[in-house]
Simulated assay, not measured.
Amino acid sequence: MERVAVDDVDGRIGPAAMVRGLTEPLGLTDLAMNYYELDPGDSFAYAYHNHEIQEEVFYVIEGTATFETESGDVDVGPDEAVRFGREEFQRGWNRGDERVVAIALGAPLSYGESVTLRYCPECEGETDNDLGRADDEAAVVAHCGRCGVETGRWYRGSMAGEVP
């Protein structure tokens, strides 16, 4: 058995006010698990995306999360869960005025290949993006896969450059 207090897990850089990865502290080998706190305007993910082999479930504890999907927006409120299958595009946001608290589960643990679509001002459209660390390791940076221009930059607990 493994046990961990969420507050004892260090937060990491992400597109939300708080992202705490619970996968490693719990010793999970077949399932990814993350705890999120989203301030208004925050997102669960860096981009509208899918995963080749992983399905995801989001369980909302507090607030209402709005998920962009191929068939339109879907609101998920407290004590509700939503599942996204393999290769199904989605991105969840806090578009309300109250904080969203949620748990995300993904299985299997590996994503496989992912497509991460973000708006590129140079290409004037949605393009696949590559995510990586800034040279100083203090930020996660997205670059257009077509032209290389930076399309987003996130620091711990910030949504720099994001517009939901």
Rank of each mutant, 00 (worst) to 15 (best):
R3Y: 13
R3M: 15
V6G: 03
D10P: 15
D10L: 14
G14S: 05
A17P: 07
A17F: 08
V19F: 00
L22A: 11
L22D: 02
L22H: 02
L22T: 06
T23H: 01
T23A: 05
T23S: 09
E24I: 06
E24S: 14
P25S: 02
P25C: 11
P25F: 11
P25V: 03
G27E: 04
G27F: 03
L28C: 08
T29C: 03
A32W: 02
Y35M: 04
E37G: 00
L38T: 09
P40M: 05
G41Y: 05
D42Y: 01
D42M: 02
D42F: 00
F44P: 05
F44D: 08
A45F: 02
A45L: 14
H49C: 08
H49V: 01
H51S: 00
H51P: 01
E52R: 07
E56I: 08
Y59Q: 10
G63F: 12
A65C: 08
A65I: 07
T66D: 01
T66Y: 00
F67C: 07
F67S: 01
T69G: 06
E70Y: 04
S71I: 11
S71C: 05
G72D: 08
G72A: 07
D73E: 15
V74L: 10
G77M: 08
D79H: 15
D79T: 11
D79M: 15
A81K: 06
R83L: 12
F84R: 02
G85V: 10
G85W: 05
R86F: 07
E87D: 12
G92S: 03
N94S: 06
D97Q: 13
E98W: 02
R99D: 10
V100Y: 10
V100K: 06
V101L: 07
A104V: 09
A104L: 09
A107P: 01
A107I: 01
P108K: 04
P108R: 05
L109E: 12
Y111W: 03
G112Y: 00
S114D: 13
Y119P: 14
C120V: 04
C120I: 02
C120E: 02
P121C: 10
G125N: 03
D128I: 02
D128P: 04
N129W: 04
N129Q: 12
N129H: 15
N129E: 09
D130R: 14
D130C: 07
G132I: 11
R133K: 15
R133F: 15
D136V: 03
E137M: 11
E137H: 14
V141S: 00
A142E: 11
H143P: 05
G145F: 01
R146K: 14
C147D: 06
V149D: 11
G152Q: 07
R156F: 03
G157E: 07
M159E: 08
M159P: 04
A160S: 14
G161L: 00
E162T: 15
